[in-house]
Design a protein around this nucleic acid. Structure first.
Lengths: 368, 368
DNA sequence: CGCGTCGATGTAATCGATTCCACAAGGAGG
DNA sequence: CCTCCTTGTGGAATCGATTACATCGACGCG
């Protein structure tokens, strides 16, 4: 591998001058610059990022530890994170925790060993000592999607409460009264919040959420299937199952199908997290859509602000209900003429909800 | 950040001894080892991987440049790659090329700058000068899924020819005669091979593949939609559309749905690459499944062999047809009593094909 | 007793960059 | 003409590890 010394020799200057040219330091003569550039080109020289990082103590690399790469929500998040980071001149190393705290720790540790400039995490659990230490030690850090309470780290996330209320209102209007939820792990904030939001929304409609209608899941498909089977075994099964993420919804669909039942005739289904395939499932699935791309971008901006010495801000963006057919009769858009902004009683149409029609099968953009 | 000097001072030994303890060098006294370990623990010392890499000229990191992270096939591939790499003591940095040669080059360049130990690539195009140079310069490299002909780099991939023949046989048996394909970019090997395999299989059945039945796609959903619309506009539209990857199948589904047509009654649909959601689409989609996890693992093993001085082997694994309902009447398993191993004439049952029934909705394991 | 060997340890060179500091040349100003 | 800056440049220290080489004491053996 050719090093800066080779370039210096070839150009007939010192390594200091080569370095200055490469870093656009102002006081270099036009002549020297030209000779160095020529040498760089003729040798095909590329600076060694490892050596540079050692000296400058910055890697221009961000670490991203996500809960599960196989979850399309996180894949999309990862993609937008990488995009924004690249635009700002950073690379991203992704670690997949697979919803396992030990794996999460493994990745945090290796990323820290590599001296990444900052860490983006959606924690799998309530917070390992490792991560808490890193945060306290001053590692630039931002939580995305999920977070750990009581730590002074900015959080970038979506607030699903409004959309969950819209969903419950929608379900209530369709005549559903026995609503169940498949929750995420209690150790995660999203695991707790979505249940809390659901329960609150039910109470506003005068419904309650009995324990047997709370299934315990882990955000993976298999757990969604198990929880749904348990619901179906109840003496009085729920009329609706709301899965707290898209993979558990997939599992729920598996369970329903295995029993030979039909959605929404025998049981309705809704999910948190909207993904492209929900348009084409049988039936299309009503879901709560997060502004995933914007979340990823905002998280990177917050982290880079922190790294570069500016004050980072926490960001909360609203999620939005997308109505499809999995909860019952397909609502005709004309029924929802002008969505109101204020909180609404249960018998009125849902706010901010998008009803998809056959004419607009792919994009979810229509805000009517 | 605490360095090896701090540890040496704390333990009352030299940095050399600390390094020896950390690298399990045999000639260190029990006493010194204990003192060093104690110092490491009390200071919470972690070696700086950047400095270590500079000195040892190895990063224990693999680069993976994939064509599109949003494609579930590649996500799964990335996951298995990371898993196997971790098992072998390597980290993985993923670069997403988004099917764009310029982005692919960007990632290859930054990975090379970071002095990764080896590179795993599924090339987006016929081969940029950058990648060819890297290969010739001796960078350990392995192609996965797609490859570049004429370069001396091991290839790990799936051979879909058998499965495509099974698919065509299956379609022929169902009475379909006008079969169309949405191809991938001609610059990719998978883009070409799948068309070639399809054409060959058609010929064996006495059918041909007119130009108008070859749609040009780019492995992304939008192109699948456009190609399908063009098929539907033909005076004599095809009876079957075979999408060369899962995203283009999604686009095809969009197009069919936008016309108010139904699968498989109005037009049949099949896809290369099997994904979990295909079980739950309306209707479930017949697809060709690659052994994705095994491909990722084999690719990593080949690359690490190359890095560590052993001779790497190219690997080709067979793909397999999974029959669902998107091409017509759901075949009853009893119709396929004993699949034969030898090549079969068109009117006999498909070889190696798995027919999914309602009793077995999730797993595709049954090989009967 | 003296010599060679071996095990444990420290000193210092090294990896490839960046950057502080010294210094030379040249121009401006008194 | 002598200072004083400014500009361009090179030498050398530095980042945090690994490792070749030197050193030193203990021990075995003739």
């Amino acid at each position: 591998m050719t090093s800066i010394k080779d370039v210096a020799a070839e150009a007939g200057v010192s390594v200091a001058t080569v370095s200055r040219v490469l870093n656009e330091h102002p006081s270099v003569s036009e002549d020297a610059r030209a000779r160095v550039l020529a040498a760089v080109a003729s040798l095909g020289y590329r600076p060694n990022a490892v050596a540079r990082s050692l000296r400058t103590d910055q890697t221009r690399t961000l670490g991203l530890v996500i809960s599960d790469v196989l979850n399309p929500y996180f894949t999309e998040l990862a993609r937008s994170v990488e995009e924004e980071a690249r635009a700002l001149g950073y690379s991203v190393i992704i670690g997949n925790a697979d919803e396992r705290p030990d794996l999460q720790d493994h990745h945090v540790r290796t990323l820290l060993d590599r001296r990444i400039d900052g860490l983006l995490v959606s924690p799998t659990d309530g917070g390992s000592p490792l991560m808490l230490d890193a945060a306290r030690a001053g590692t630039p850090m931002v939580f995305v999607d999920r977070w750990i309470p009581g730590v002074d780290v900015p959080v970038v996330r979506a607030d699903g409460r409004g959309a969950v209320r819209d969903l419950v209102t929608h379900l209530h209007r369709l005549g559903h009264r026995r609503l169940a939820i498949i929750a995420g792990p209690a150790a995660t904030t999203t695991g707790q919040e979505r249940v809390a939001a659901f329960r609150e929304a039910l109470e506003e409609c005068g419904l309650d959420l009995p324990d047997q209608y709370i299934g315990q899941g882990d955000f993976q498909a298999a757990s969604g299937r198990r929880a749904t089977e348990r619901f179906l075994d109840l003496a009085e099964p729920p009329q609706v199952v709301f899965a707290a993420d898209n993979l558990m919804a997939l599992g729920a669909l598996d369970a329903v199908r295995a029993r030979g039942l039909r959605v929404p005739d025998d049981i309705a289904l809704a999910a948190f997290d909207d993904i492209r395939w929900f348009v084409h499932t049988d039936p299309p699935i009503t879901a709560i859509a997060q502004p995933t791309g914007e979340l990823g971008r905002a998280a990177v901006r917050a982290l880079v602000d922190r790294i570069e010495g500016r004050a980072p801000r926490s960001v909360t963006l609203p999620a939005r209900l997308v109505v499809r057919r999995s909860c019952g009769e397909n609502p005709v858009p004309s029924e929802n003429p002008v969505p109101s902004e204020s909180p609404v009683p249960c018998e009125t149409p849902a706010t901010n909800a998008t009803a998809e029609t056959n004419e607009n099968p792919v994009t979810n953009r229509s805000q009517s």
